[in-house]
Simulated assay, not measured.
Amino acid sequence: FQAVGQILAGLVQCGAWGCFDEFNRIDISVLSVISTQLQTIRSALVNKVNRFPFEGVEIDLDMKVGVFITMNPGYAGRTELPESVKALFRPVVCILPDLEMICMISLFSDGFLQAKVLAKKMTVLYKLAREQLSKQSHYDWGLRALTAVLRMAGVMKRASPELPETLVLMRALRDMNYPKFVYEDVPLFLDLIKDLFPGKDCPRVEYAGFNEAVVKVLESNKYILLPVQMDKVVQLYETMMTRHSTMVVGPTGGGKTVVINTLCDAQTQMGLMTKTYTINPK
């Protein structure tokens, strides 16, 4: 609450607007203190004072200040807002976004002529995957995951304009989702893609020089060349190119360290010096 108090004091003095995202993730005991801080600011605004006491210090008040909060009620790990906090804010309810419409507009803007049909296929695939695949904490079938695929599809379309549009989207959907699946879900997801894109075969992309570098690194470290593990290195390489941060998840002895180290050594062999720094999260 002290950190939030400092932020609020800064907003009040400079007249800025502040938006607190996922506000109901804050612990209920802290929310009660924050509600008192907000009530103090509101009273100062109602009384139109130039200065007022806040957290033991007298500060200036800029009347242009505004405080907004966003929240997702009903989610796990979220707190129900106390009535004292609710009373300070005017509610604005947002409906679920039309995913198909968003996909269609994004595909059209990237030059896809069959955007309407492809947008339908994308949203149906994500709906079926959400219903039929196993429930994992790292699976995401929402708008954020869809926009990442759309960005990748746009990049592929510009890089290979001669490829059929259905093949471009099929490859983006497969390559952006494939790395995150647990072993049992892989064949199910590939079958869903085959059903939605019948008769289309989309081989994995070969990266000039990189695949050969991966083989050399694995052989030099005396590892048996397993296609599944080599492909996992390529998947990590693709993920690192399209995501800001990456989490490698798996059981002890599952090959996480080998995959990470192989990627680093392969990139170093190709002239891209890559170093790893281990940080203890504890």
Rank of each mutant, 00 (worst) to 15 (best):
R204M: 09
P198R: 00
Q235L: 09
L107S: 05
F112M: 06
V4L: 03
M247L: 15
V249D: 03
G66L: 07
L143W: 01
T276L: 05
N177K: 13
G10K: 02
R25H: 05
L113C: 05
A208H: 14
D60R: 05
I41R: 07
G18L: 04
I102V: 14
P251V: 03
M152H: 15
K127V: 01
I28R: 14
I95W: 09
L226E: 15
E212L: 12
R171K: 12
Q269D: 12
P281S: 03
E83A: 14
V186M: 11
Q235K: 12
M71T: 06
L173Y: 05
V215G: 04
A44G: 04
F210T: 12
T147D: 09
I41C: 10
V149E: 09
D110M: 06
N177G: 04
L128Y: 05
Q132T: 11
D175C: 07
Y139R: 06
S43A: 15
T123V: 15
N280L: 11
N50C: 03
C14H: 09
G111Q: 03
M176Q: 14
G5H: 08
N280M: 08
C19P: 00
L81T: 14
I69W: 04
Y139S: 06
I34Q: 05
R243D: 02
E22Q: 14
F189T: 01
T278Y: 09
K256N: 02
S137I: 08
S32A: 14
T79R: 06
K64N: 14
